[in-house]
Write a protein that binds this DNA or RNA. Structure first.
Lengths: 334, 334
DNA sequence: CTGAAAGCGCTTACAG
DNA sequence: CTGAAAGCGCTTACAG
């Protein structure tokens, strides 16, 4: 009752051309070893002649296997999560899966609509990286029976599976490092958001527990930029701040902090240490090279893909929460 | 013959709960003004009670409108194309479309398989940003009847629609600027790839036509990084190069170039000018601020979305190739 | 190894 | 404004 979908011929057309049943053509794609060599050859020729590409909507509907995975990220640019998405995509593509992108972006009000449109596509898995979803959206996901994997954090109440690390532990590790290197007066230039907050909290608590004064904090909207780092440091110093360590919520802002300090003739790390977060590609090339926190985003993506594949194969998962940890990379800046 | 798809109840279940036909429930979602207020209310309640989320696979199959768009990009990280994808997604999401990601990545051999899996989902449009596809993949796309939009370039033989600009013209504009500011001895630090090549070519040709010596070129694998810029400049200077302008294929490498020059005590722009490409967020914050080329990635994304929407509404498109141009942002570095 | 047929969960012309 | 029914293009148990 409609125009056919663009892009082509159908299974039936191929079946007619090859003079076999449509079941046989379906098997050619899905269970090729079931076919005799002769049949295989006939079907292959027909497929090529017609330029047939199977309709995955129909296939997914019939088999209830969509081979679709959705990755939900806050925004595409300047993303720490790039390597995670890339690894996820590479691993899953090899198994015939496609990855859809869900951008929650600035509009948290739209999060629920976004989630509905994702669930509507019946993905076999949803990877959450970055966003903290509003409760209603979380409830929808929980009720959906879809494999959900939260990443880049260790949520207190996981929806389903988790591959991440503790941001509070990161903050504590930075504090331990700061104190071990004789720093006490910290300035924290931090993005908004629960994760940066957790790192801040872990850091401040550990500092204060060891007798250091409470760190001064400046926050700015995510995502963190070079400019944020420069501006925050400039403002702090001009306001009379005398830090001996500056803890930044990303390598971007740490880079800005370094440049601002240099502009003011302040030596790093002699006078002030600078710590980043993320270990982005440029971190080791800066001068001084940046001390920062490395998270292996590839591993997160791969483990998430593994989880997904195991679920779809019906294997049980004994350990639904994986903490991949992190590393403090000590370099020249502190 | 299969377990039902996860995530839920069906149209029929809702219809039974609301004591209406399934056609009516379908209309509740697709053509709500066709229903009486009473019916609408009854259906709404049933939908909420059951937590029903329509199956878009089934809907797409039945209506041949998938409301799916695929964006093909080379890789997710460090991407100039981020704003394009974001704008595309935002614009389309408002119209009920989802955006799938196709990552062509490093594996050009897999490009065709990737294209097949994209076509198999029957998207209403495919946005190509970045990758130069192998001929066979291009042929598949051309034969697919799907709206194809090539972006960020003006291909000589478009597959279908185009929203981009001329990279050769960018090269010429940089040359004109260089010559106008008295520069003649150019070093070009460039990524591989046809677009960077086109800029290089446009630049070199224009320089030489005005009597300047042939620029020295160093190329490195995409994507361009801060490190590439530093290393290329260091190697060139140590090899005895005496440029008065350094043209970089991205703001990343230009940033690296600036830092390398500063490290060597070379003044910018007095001794050497530095030109970037992309006008990324940090470009205007560097010291000196970076002269670079601005492309409005948002506009590309929006125009691509417009094209798509017009096509799906059956409107004709009189002008299938849109050149959105670019701007040379003159700043402190040259 | 292969085919006939039911079914996946929707949409939509048609009829009322 | 609403419903009965055909159809979208596949998959897969069943039978042979």
């Amino acid at each position: 009752m409609r125009a056919p979908l663009p892009a082509g011929s159908t299974l039936d057309a191929v079946a007619r051309a090859a003079e076999v049943s449509s079941a046989t053509v379906s098997r050619f794609f899905n269970t090729p070893k079931m076919l005799s060599p002769r049949t295989t050859q006939r079907v292959r020729e027909a497929v090529e002649r017609l330029g047939y590409v199977p309709n995955l909507l129909a296939g997914g509907l019939a088999s209830s296997r969509t081979r679709l995975v959705t990755a939900v990220i806050p925004e595409i640019s300047r993303s720490l999560f790039a390597s995670t998405i890339q690894a996820l995509t590479d691993t899953l593509a090899a198994k015939g899966y496609s990855v859809m992108l869900g951008l929650t972006g600035a509009h948290e009000e739209h999060a629920e609509r976004e989630i509905l449109s994702i669930i509507g596509r019946r993905p076999e898995g949803i990877i959450l990286t970055g966003p903290t979803l509003p409760p209603e959206a979380r409830r929808r996901l929980k009720g959906s029976d879809i494999t959900i994997i939260e990443t880049w954090d260790l949520p207190a109440e996981p929806i389903d599976l988790v591959v991440g690390f503790s941001h509070e532990a990161v903050g504590r590790a930075i504090a331990a490092h700061a104190l071990a290197t004789g720093r006490r007066r910290a300035f924290v230039a931090s993005a908004t958001g629960v994760r940066a907050l957790a790192r801040r909290y872990g850091f401040a608590k550990a500092m204060m527990e060891r007798g250091a004064p409470e760190p001064t904090v400046a926050t700015f909207e995510s995502p963190t930029t070079y400019r944020h780092g420069r501006a925050a440091v400039a403002a702090h110093l001009e306001g009379g701040g005398k830090p001996d360590i500056i803890v930044c919520s990303s390598d971007w802002s740490a880079h800005g902090a370094l440049d601002e300090l240099r502009r003011r003739g302040i030596r790093v790390p002699e006078e002030i240490a600078v710590i980043g977060f993320g270990d982005l590609d440029f971190a080791s090339d800066l001068e001084p090279s940046l001390t920062t926190v490395t998270i292996d985003g590839n591993v997160i993506g791969q483990k998430a893909a593994d989880f997904l594949l195991r679920r779809t194969q019906g294997q049980r998962i004994d350990n639904p929460v994986v903490d991949i940890g992190f590393k403090l990379m000590r370099r020249g800046s502190g």
